[in-house]
Structures are given as structure tokens and as C-alpha cells.
Nucleic acid binder design. Sequence first.
RNA 1: GGCGGCAUAGCCAAGUGGUAAGGCACGGGUCUGCAAAACCUUUACCCCCGGUUCGAGUCCGGGUGCCGCCUCCA
Length: 466
Amino acid sequence: MSLVVYNTLSRKKEPFIPLEEGKVKMYVCGPTVYNYIHIGNARPAIVFDTVRRYLEYSGYDVHFISNFTDVDDKLIRVANETGTDVPTVAQKYIDAYHEDVCALGVKKADHHPRVMETIPEIITFIEQLIEKGFAYEAGGDVYFKTRNFNGYGKLSHQSIDDLRIGARIEVGEKKNDPLDFALWKAAKEGEIFWESPWGKGRPGWHIECSAMAKKYLGDSIDIHGGGQDLSFPHHENEIAQSEALNEAPMAKYWMHNGYINIDNEKMSKSLGNFVLVHDMVKEHDPQVIRFFMLAVHYRNPINFSKELLESAEAGLNRIRTAYENVKHRLTVTAGLGTEEEAWLEKTAALKARFKKEMDDDFNTANAISVLFDAAKEANVYLKEDNVSEKALSSFIELFEDISGVLGITLQKEAELLDADIDALIQERNEARKQRNFARADEIRDLLKEQNIILEDTAQGVRWKRA
RNA sequence: GGCGGCAUAGCCAAGUGGUAAGGCACGGGUCUGCAAAACCUUUACCCCCGGUUCGAGUCCGGGUGCCGCCUCCA
């Protein structure tokens, strides 16, 4: 049993064999930082964070790079509108990105390169493309000669002649062929710029990823990821630039996540039907958002609505409760189990199933179903009078392994009971012994008002925070 | 015009040849002083029409509907 990955290049699932044994180099296109991210932007962050976590769980040494596009037309516009400058705008939204994505359980990449820090490498890259005859300067701009790159369209499976080339011509551009795309753009009056062999200007959009991937990971990487909408033209152009220069495959596996839809339509900034993560997390547990997204296979679209999020929340709570209840049982005096082996076999089987599902192109939806089955089995086990510490621990380990890979925290806020609350629980226990249920219920209600839920079990009172 | 995706129970969603995972919601039952949590249990003509096959949600052909990319977009 080994990992297979769906590769956009071949449109097939392929066995995952990294270029260098035991090591994975991956690059994921990050956001253009001119605004807060919406939940559509959050999907690739969550998906590829999960891919990375699973690769690490599987024993790979993962080198993960994700960029920030911090110079472009939209940043310039926002800077002008707000009376600040591009670096200020960029820094604001980079900080916001980290904050949002951290709430969603996304680990930081090994490095988050920015265009502004990569200008020398970008310029060198372009110079070399010109030397090799793949690019030309035109009035301060530099363009890539698309038709010179044999293999253009191999990622999106487009024939170069079938593209609606008319749509690519923009007013005032100096390209020779409508298919050509900008590597370097001459600065307009008042725009942020860098000095270059072609005068003052800034990089085009696609070149940054080619330059950064090369700088941090080398000429060929294992996994290149991003949203489906990047496959054309962005990734196609990256391939053209990088492979024209490096004469080596840019990436072995190209992975693309599906969109988030609202009312069955793609969520996008231009349609205005987006929900910002920044706002979302004020109303919903960000962990629920992550759980909700991972409950669907990453290549399929997700329809987003508040109702669906709430139903996901109910599901996650079921898993969390089961996990907490197993932990609770571990704190009370545990009897000696006689069927320990059978339960250890069950948890081992569930773990094997989890790996099998994740090995199949990161099927997190099925991985989550394993988590539900684990919750079910754990709940059944908890009904037994005698349980073993070993079996309980194997459940805990199972829950933590899976949730760790999915990047979901099962543990609720671990706060100690106040002495007052503790005393109330004791008092209620006394009242119950004396069958003074009125007082017992009164205390339970009192605690409920403070979001402490009491549950009477055969092993004593169990409590949790609502 | 070119390229591609999707259509599975009330809702969400897995499932690429052997007779439909899982979740949410709903109904019934069990446990409980009452609850909570949980367990058991009911609910699917897999969009339509052909074809291949001993056997198809799963492969092939043809429809229908929805969505996306080809233009900044995760």
C-alpha cells in the first residue's frame, strides 16, 4: 500500500515517487495580499497543509514553500486608494493572512518568499530567458515568446491554436503575439519600481513563482499546488518559463484543489459572493471550517452555506465528545479488561484504514469517516464495565494521529475547575445520594449557565464545557 | 468555438466491475431519578436512453441539467 497522487499533467492518479528518496519538495501558490482572504482562498491553504502533514506523518522530510504576491496592480490600486504605499498594504495583509490561516490550523511554510525580496533572482531569470531566445524586450516591457516553448498547453491540455487568443490582447500592450505574456512591466508614472536592464519596472505575475521555486527548491520539484483556476494560465506559464530556462520538468506532480461555491457558483472577488475568513471566525469555530472543508475530497467543489457548516459542527462535536469521554475514562479507576486484544485489533484496523484512505490521493473525506467509526467504537467500548488502560490509550492515539494529520484539534479548552465549581459538583453528589433531586437539578442548571455540562455516568460525574 | 468537471437518500458526501461507507436531520426503541452522552433501529428505482459483461453507481456511446477554465481570481 503506497501513496498515489492525482496529477493534473496526466489526468491520472500516479504512484508517488519523490525525486529524491525520503524527501519532498513542494511549492504552493499563495495569495496576492491586497485584501483579507476569503474562504475560497483558505481552501488551498488547508488542503496543502494537510497534504504536507500527511507526507510528514508518512515519514518524508518535506520542504514546503509558499509565496506572497506583494507587488501587482491591485496592491498599487489599494495603496493609492488608502493613501499609503505598496509595502504597507502588503505587510498589513500578510500579517492578516498568517493570523487567519493560523486559526484554521495551517502551519507556516518553511519559507514564505515575497516578490519584493526576490527581484534580483527574477531579473536574472528574465535575462537568461532573453539570452536563450525565449523572451524579448519591447518598450520597457519584457515578454515571453510563448510559441517558442514546445509543449505549451500540456498542463491544461489546451492546443495553442484553440485558445481564444483575442481575449488576451490588452489595450496598450506591446507584445508581438497575443499569446505572449509579460515577464517584466515598465513602471507607469508614480508606480512602485525597481531598476532593471530594461529600465524602471516590476515583475509580471507568473515569473515570481518560477524564480522562487528555483531559488528555494531547485530546478525540479515534487509537488506544485494551487487552486484549479491557476492551472491556466498561471501554472502553464510557470512551466513555460521554468522549463525553457532549466530544461528540466518544473514539477513532477501538479495538484489543484476545487473551488468553494456559493449557491453553486464559484466564490470569487469579482462576483462579490465571498465570505472573509476574518469575519467568519468571529461567528464560527475555525476548526469547524477546516473540518467542513476536509469532509469533501479536495478536487471536488464545495458548496458553502451556514447550514452546512452547522451540520459539520454537530459532527465534529460528536468526535470531540467521544475523544473527551475516552480521556475521562482514563482518569477514573479503570477495571481490568478481559477483551483487550480485540479492541487493540480494532484500533489497529482503523488506523490502517486511515492510512489506506489518505494514501489514495489524500481522501480526507474517508479519513474523517474513519474518525467517526473510531468514535463509534470508542463509545461502545466505554459502555463496558471493565476497560483496560492500554486499549483506552490506543483509542486516544488513534484519535490524535488522525486529527493531527487533518490539523484539527479535538481537545477542548483545558481549564481547571474552579474550586467553587468543584464544590458544587460535590454538593450535588451529596444531594443525589440523599435523593434530593430538586437541589441536584438546581446545581446542574446553575453550572449549565456557566457553560459547564454535567453528565452522570456509571463511573461518576463527567463534565465538559459547552 | 476549444478544454474540463459534476449529477448517489430530506440535506452533505465516499465509492472506477461483484450487488450502495460515513455524517447531519427525522421517527421508533434502550439506558437514566430526570437529563446528558451513548447504543440499537427505520429510510436509496445511484439524472435519462442504449451498449459491453455472468455481473455496472462504477466501463463505452448518446441525451438532459448544472458548474468551471480559456481574462485578475485559490
